[in-house]
Simulated scan of single mutants.
Amino acid sequence: MDAATFTPHFDIPEQYAPDAVHPVRVRSRPMGVATVFGFHQHPWAQVAYTSEGVMRIEVDDTTWIVPPSRAIWIPAYVVHNAQVIEPAYLRTLYVDVSVIPPNLSECRVIEVSPLLRELIVALDVDDDTLSASREQSIVQLILDEIVRSESLPLGVPLPADKRLRALCEAIIANPKAGDSLEQLALDVGASVRTISRLFRNELGSSFSEWRQQAVLAHAIPLLSQGQSLSQVASELGYTSQSAFTAMFRRAFGKSPREFFKETA
Rank of each mutant, 00 (worst) to 15 (best):
P30I: 06
P30K: 07
P30D: 15
M31C: 13
M31E: 13
G32C: 04
G32D: 11
G32F: 06
G32P: 04
V33Q: 15
V33R: 14
V33S: 12
V33E: 15
V33K: 14
A34D: 15
T35G: 10
V36F: 12
V36C: 13
V36A: 15
F37P: 01
G38E: 14
G38A: 12
G38Q: 11
F39I: 10
F39N: 14
F39T: 14
F39K: 15
F39H: 15
H40F: 03
H40M: 09
Q41D: 08
Q41F: 01
Q41G: 03
Q41V: 01
H42T: 07
P43S: 07
W44Q: 08
W44D: 04
A45D: 09
A45M: 08
Q46N: 14
Q46S: 15
V47M: 15
V47T: 12
V47L: 15
A48K: 04
Y49L: 10
Y49P: 03
S51M: 11
G53W: 02
G53N: 01
G53C: 05
V54E: 06
V54L: 08
R56I: 05
R56V: 13
I57C: 04
E58H: 08
E58G: 08
E58Q: 12
D60M: 08
D60T: 06
D60Q: 11
D61V: 05
D61I: 00
T62Q: 14
T62F: 05
T62L: 05
T63D: 05
T63M: 09
T63A: 12
I65Y: 01
I65Q: 02
V66F: 12
P67K: 07
P67Y: 09
P67I: 06
P68M: 01
S69I: 02
S69M: 12
S69K: 14
R70N: 11
R70G: 01
R70C: 13
R70V: 02
A71Q: 04
A71P: 02
A71N: 00
A71K: 00
A71Y: 01
I72S: 01
W73G: 00
W73C: 02
W73N: 00
I74W: 00
I74C: 07
A76C: 07
A76L: 04
A76N: 03
Y77H: 14
Y77S: 12
Y77T: 09
Y77M: 14
V78W: 04
V79P: 05
V79E: 10
V79I: 06
H80W: 00
H80K: 03
N81P: 02
A82S: 12
A82M: 14
A82H: 02
I85G: 06
E86M: 09
Y89S: 10
L90Q: 12
L90R: 08
R91G: 00
R91P: 02
R91M: 10
T92E: 11
T92M: 10
L93A: 09
Y94C: 03
Y94I: 00
V95E: 07
V95M: 08
D96Q: 07
S98L: 06
V99Q: 05
V99F: 03
P101H: 06
P101C: 06
P102G: 10
P102W: 06
N103Y: 08
N103D: 15
L104M: 13
L104N: 03
L104K: 06
S105K: 11
S105N: 13
C107Y: 01
R108S: 08
